[in-house]
Amino acid sequence: MDMGTLMFAGALGLMLIGTAALVLSGHLMRMVFGLALLESGASLLLVLTGYRSGASAPIILDGVVPASMVDPVPQALVLTAIVIALGVQALALGLVLRVHRAYGTFEMREIRRRMERDICDQAGLELPSSNEVPEPYPGSPKPQQGEY
C-alpha cells in the first residue's frame, strides 16, 4: 500500500470511527467526541488534497521562492474548519452540561424519553404509547451519573 492510500485511508477511517461512535454509542458525551473525530477526519481529508509530492511549505524565506510549493488553499480552509469545529464543540459541551444538569443522565434514549415527556406535559397530552419512545426494559443498566 503506497503512502497516499494509507493517508487517505487514515482520514476516511477517522470519519468512519466518528460516525460509529455517533450511531452506536448512545452516550451523549461519546457522541460529542465522535463528532470531534468525524470533523478531524474530514479536515484531514481536506488538507491531504493539497499535498504535492516533493514540494515544500508555501512560505518564502529570505526572498527565496521554492521551486515547487504545496497548495496553500486547503491549509487555509482547514484552519477555518478547525476553528468552526472548536466553536461548535464548545457550545455542544455547554449544552451537554445543561442537559445533564436537568435530566441527570448522559444516555441518549433516556434523554429523548424525558424530552418527549416534557414536550407532551407542556402541551397537556399523554405520552404516545408507540415504540418510538420505548420505556427502558427491566435489567438494562441504570443511567450512570457523574461519570464525567
Binding site: 463528532l35 445543561r98 442537559v99 434523554i111
Partner: peptide
C-alpha cells in the same frame, strides 16, 4: 427549558454530522 436543551443538543449532533460530511 430542559426539553429545549435536549432538543438543541440532538439537533446539534445531527447538524454537526451533516456539516462534517
Amino acid at each position: 427549558t430542559p426539553a429545549a436543551f435536549a432538543a438543541a443538543i440532538r439537533y446539534l449532533i445531527i447538524s454537526g454530522f451533516g456539516a462534517a460530511l
